[in-house]
Design a protein around this nucleic acid. Structure first.
Lengths: 95, 95
DNA sequence: TGGTCATATGCCTGTCAAGGAATGCGAGGC
DNA sequence: GCCTCGCATTCCTTGACAGGCATATGACCA
């Protein structure tokens, strides 16, 4: 999901402000179908929501699924805040 | 990278303790070549280091690359800690 | 209702990655 | 020196996915 650079770019842009599909197409310099497909993936992953405004679809980011990523990262973050310095010293010493 | 469930399982296991390839094979119930290939990917990504102990290769996690993930997540985390409640209220209201 | 605009979907192709089977390779034990 | 063990690498097949083009859908306007 976040492995796709294009999708991260979409999220980074939607993080600043919601956008229509056309705006994203212009910003990404990609074909419109490609953008729509990425948006579909993001939609099904729950990372974005969309509302219909006239003929446009306005996409907006939904942060909640990212908390799962943050939760997964939690134990690791604890490790490096606790022991990173010691680990670095260890790794440097064995190079 | 982290999109692969198998690799996340490997990391989750190495987070608790370093392991040899054989231990990982047994823990994951996968073929040995498959595990070695995933370890190669993780090695080239800098997420694990390995040392040679007798005939075994002992793999150990390296947390430093995960800080990049954490950094990428930073702006989003700020958003939800600041505004998640408001966003949830907004989304609920428009369902 | 016919036409147009904004978006979604289907079809096609190229690319890439995962997994298994077989094999190569270095370290130890006899 | 040979054989075995632990792991890495190669080859192969299969499946997933990105991107483009063409086309469908759906909302609005004349």
């Amino acid at each position: 999901m976040l492995a796709e650079p294009t999708r991260r770019r979409i999220l980074d842009r939607l993080r600043r402000s919601e956008s229509s599909v056309g705006e994203l197409v212009a910003a990404l310099g990609m074909s419109q179908p490609a953008v729509s497909k990425h948006l579909k993936v993001l939609r099904e992953a729950g990372l974005v929501t969309c509302r219909t405004a006239a003929q446009q679809r306005i996409y907006r980011i939904d942060l909640r699924p990212l908390r799962a990523v943050d939760d997964w990262l939690g134990p690791y973050r604890r490790m490096w805040t606790d022991h990173l310095d010691a680990l670095e010293r260890h790794l440097d010493s064995q190079e």
